[in-house]
Simulated scan of single mutants.
Amino acid sequence: MKVKLSTTSLLSKPFYLFTLLLLVLFGLVVMSLVTGAKTISVSESWSSLSLWQVCHSENCDIIRFSRLPRTLAGLVAGCALGLAGALMQSLTRNPLADPGLLGVNSGASFTTVLGLSVWGSLSFWQSYSLAFFGALLAAVIVAVTGAGRGGRLNPIRLTLAGVSLAAILEGLTSGLSLLNPEIYDHLRFWQTGSLDVRQLSVFTLLSPFVITAAGLTLMMSRSLNALSLGEDLARTLGIRVGLVQILGVLLIALLSASATALTGPIAFIGLIAPHLARGCFGSDHRYFLPGTLLLTPAVLLLADIIGRSIGPGEIRVSIITAFIGAPVLIGLVRYRIGRGIS
């Protein structure tokens, strides 16, 4: 009797796509290390990353203290923004939902400017801590305000609360910054998001938050699949809808706050990447969320590489993502808004 082994489960479409995305992401990481004002070979970049080797050249310093932190920032911020956007769209069932709806950008800007007004100047760690705290606090306030009866998420109230809080904080931030030209210059520089992170030590503090939030998000795949069928049907399947929504919003807040504190506000990434992942993997969150986790940092690193490669100077990644994201947003409004996110 012959036994016919089926490889469908192993060599399915998601398997091929995940493999391809991993290869693309690895290639973009290598390109991010070697691309810049000064071209450095792959072999020299690799040898510069060796922990047992002491830097004795300018190229080694560039790799270790400029391009490596920059690449890690793209990976961490990309994963955080992508998952936050995917969660936001899934929970609100709104194809145009973005992590910025929670007011994280405005909260981070306000606490940073407030700290500058009080202390006059901020160290890197003080600026990062204030931005993280402000973004997280703003997101929690919006989440609590946007919750309906029984703690369930109300998308309309959530959006209105986010827009209202953002308007208030942006007004206060502008008022404080206009009183001091130095604060205004700092705010203008920070609000144009960039991956130009110069300290590796920040990742030791940030990574546990992002890894924990990403892990919990991936574990919610079954609940999100049930929730996409409607709240009533999800309850019949044993899903605690209110708890899932509250946990989801808190995870969005944590992911968005981490990314915003690290790189500043980067527009469109949390909106675009989930749609690209959904187009590749479908709406099943078991594949859609891991796909977003790989696709978003790839898009962010690609945008950063383009910004470093064109023109005599460097174009910030937030500007490149805006150029990429605006046409995609127009396409979403034109072709997808009437059909939801399915």
Rank of each mutant, 00 (worst) to 15 (best):
K2R: 14
T7Y: 14
T8D: 11
L10T: 13
S12W: 02
F18C: 11
F26P: 02
V29W: 08
V29T: 15
L33D: 12
T35M: 09
K38V: 13
S45L: 06
C55A: 15
S57N: 10
C60L: 06
D61I: 12
F65T: 12
R67Q: 03
R67M: 11
L75T: 06
L75A: 03
C79I: 14
G82D: 09
L87R: 10
N94S: 05
L101M: 11
G103N: 07
V104G: 01
V104K: 00
N105E: 05
S106H: 04
S109F: 05
F110T: 04
F110G: 01
V113H: 01
V118G: 14
G120C: 05
G120L: 11
S121A: 15
W125Q: 07
W125Y: 11
S129W: 00
V142C: 00
G151F: 10
R152G: 06
R152T: 14
P155L: 05
R157F: 08
R157C: 04
G162K: 00
V163F: 09
S164C: 12
A166G: 06
A166F: 05
S174K: 11
G175Y: 10
S177L: 07
L178M: 11
I183E: 03
D185M: 11
R188S: 13
S201L: 03
L206T: 01
S207P: 00
T212K: 13
S221W: 01
S223I: 07
S228Y: 04
L229S: 10
G230S: 13
L233I: 11
L237T: 13
I239M: 12
G242C: 05
L243C: 02
L255T: 04
A257R: 00
T263F: 02
L271Q: 10
P274W: 00
F288A: 14
F288T: 11
F288Q: 13
A298L: 00
V299A: 10
L300W: 08
I305N: 09
I315H: 00
V317E: 01
I319Y: 05
T321Q: 08
A326E: 07
V333S: 09
G340M: 10
G340F: 07
